[in-house]
């Protein structure tokens, strides 16, 4: 039941409880209650828009940073990760398997700003051993949405 609601909201966060009730056959009160609960227990973290910043005169620079950590006594990866994700520049921080440990997605106003963040902040954090910064050149798909040139499927208006 909650899963149905979450799927609908993940697809379109603006769907109202009334609409969800109609789509699922649940009562509106029940839908509202489940959503409230989901917000409270942070099953739903936030409602946001997916913005195509390339459409506006606003320079945004994105970078994917691979971070290698040095295992430290008594301090897990979590605490190092926290010192990193507290920075508002970081948009996404994942612990990953493979050749590096943390995947960090950073947004800044310029290459310069990001370079500063990496050299002044990130690389100084205790436990951070090595970083590899990759600047994003073009965003093709964002959060499941094709950024440019998404085509409408054309159908004949009437087919018997």
């Amino acid at each position: 039941m909650l899963n149905d609601i979450l799927k609908i909201l993940e697809n379109d966060a603006r769907t109202t409880p009334k609409q969800i009730a109609e789509m699922t056959g649940m009562s509106q009160a029940e839908v509202s209650r489940l959503i409230k609960q989901a917000l409270k227990d942070r099953t739903i973290l936030k409602y946001k828009a997916i913005v195509n910043w390339d459409q506006v005169e606003d320079e945004h620079v994105w970078a994917l940073i691979e971070v290698k950590l040095t295992p430290q006594k008594d301090v897990g990866f979590d605490s190092v990760a926290e010192r990193i994700y507290r920075f508002p520049q970081t948009r996404t921080v994942y612990l990953v398997s493979g050749t590096y440990d943390l995947f960090v997605l950073v947004v800044g106003k310029s290459n310069h700003e990001i370079a500063d963040f990496v050299s002044q902040k990130l690389s100084h954090i205790e436990g951070v051993n090595e970083t590899v910064t990759q600047f994003v050149l073009k965003r093709y798909k964002e959060d499941g949405e094709i950024v440019e040139g998404k085509e409408e499927v054309k159908r004949q208006p009437v087919i018997l």
Partner: peptide, 13 residues
């Protein structure tokens, strides 16, 4: 500007 409910096929590709 017609909204068509007259189709007989999925709206998915």
């Amino acid at each position: 500007g017609v909204i068509s409910l007259g189709v007989g096929e999925p709206d998915y590709a």
